[in-house]
């Protein structure tokens, strides 16, 4: 009996605490606090930890109940399951960063048929969604990385490009944009071989870079797409002592690339802040719940999303211009 009591008391206390949190004071902006679930590809990795900060900040500032969930493995089926769960919980809106856009269409259709607002991110081809918010136009992002690469290469010489995988849509659009920019603006530059896949694996990026250096001794530039290339290629260039000759630019996070920015093998990394992306997704969800439609030129009050551009063909697709460029000079401003 005493043992049961020992168990029950803390459980009651915990339940009390939880219920307090639920019924705690709300500074709701709208008529009532909404419950908004943000479902990401993968829980636990630095990128989505950072996004969670943005989602929670939005919840604190507005009084809505905002939380972030994701599967422990990057797996479309697991993500579908989590979305089923939050539908059953009766959330008001779902913000989603799909692992596989196609795999989520049925479950998102179900959500919308129950009156749940759906906002997507990194999913320009999503059909069953109320609004898609992209950090930037993919072609423009790739082209801007190419401008930086060309700058470090003196606008001439051989370069190579990496993608995470040939099926990864955004990576390939970035590279499409980059190659188009090179052909148009930097005719002295030459792409040595087709897009190299590194499967979002830093080790593979490193090995392939070493092989590129061997196969193309005159190589002067590498543009990466996955966040792992900027670090993996940077390590290879540093080991070979080629910092002065071979420039690496690409997407990446400061925490991953700091040592290569310092050694000068990786010249510049670019990213968009996942916290901001999480914040604006939730903000758009609330707008939609309150019956307001986002429109061209909308200002969301977050850097990079102050003037949204509406897609000409797909009216629910919006682009920000939220990329952030980081070099050795300004890297200390970012702690993720």
């Amino acid at each position: 009996m005493r043992r049961t009591a020992i168990l029950i008391v803390p459980m009651l206390a915990a339940a009390l605490l939880l219920s307090c949190r639920k019924s705690g004071p709300n500074v709701a902006a709208g008529p009532r606090p909404y419950t908004i679930a943000t479902i990401v590809k993968l829980d636990g990795i630095a990128w989505f930890e950072r996004m969670r900060e943005g989602v929670q900040r939005f919840g604190r500032e507005t009084g809505h109940k905002c939380f972030l969930l994701g599967p422990a493995q990057a797996d479309a089926a697991l993500q579908v399951q989590i979305i089923e769960d939050v539908i059953a919980q009766g959330v008001d809106a779902i913000c989603v960063v799909p692992f596989s856009v196609e795999a989520l269409e049925p479950v998102l259709r179900k959500a919308r048929s129950q009156g749940i607002v759906v906002v997507s991110h990194e999913a320009s081809n999503q059909v069953n969604t109320d609004a898609i918010i992209e950090p930037f136009d993919n072609l423009a992002y790739g082209a801007h990385l190419m401008d930086h690469l060309a700058h470090h290469m003196g606008a001439s010489g051989q370069y190579a490009v990496f993608v995470g995988s040939l099926t990864s849509k955004s990576h390939n659009e970035w590279i499409d944009g980059a190659i188009a920019r090179q052909k148009g603006k930097y005719p002295q530059m030459e792409l040595v071989t087709e897009r190299i896949e590194e499967y979002d694996n830093q080790n593979t990026a490193y090995e392939k870079t070493k092989e590129l250096i061997r196969a193309y001794p005159e190589l002067k530039g590498i543009q990466g797409s996955a966040s792992t290339t900027a670090a993996g290629a940077g390590l290879a260039v540093e080991e070979k002592g080629l910092q002065e000759k071979l420039a690496v630019v690409g997407s990446g996070l400061v925490s991953q690339c700091r040592q290569y920015l310092v050694s000068g093998s990786t010249k510049l990394i670019s990213f968009w802040d996942p916290a901001d992306a999480g914040y604006v997704m939730n903000k758009i969800a609330v707008m939609l719940l309150e019956g307001k439609r986002p429109s061209d030129g909308l200002d969301l009050g977050v850097p990079g999303y102050t003037q949204l551009r509406q897609d000409t063909e797909k009216p629910n697709l919006f682009y920000g211009s939220a990329w952030v460029d980081v070099t050795r000079q300004n890297m200390d401003a970012y702690n993720f």
Binding site: L166, T193, E194, R195, I196, E197, E207, K208, E211, L212, R214, A215
Partner: peptide, 11 residues
């Protein structure tokens, strides 16, 4: 695994 770029084999 490490010679396919040398041989210019596509991905």
């Amino acid at each position: 695994n490490n010679s396919l770029i040398l041989l210019d084999v596509p991905s």
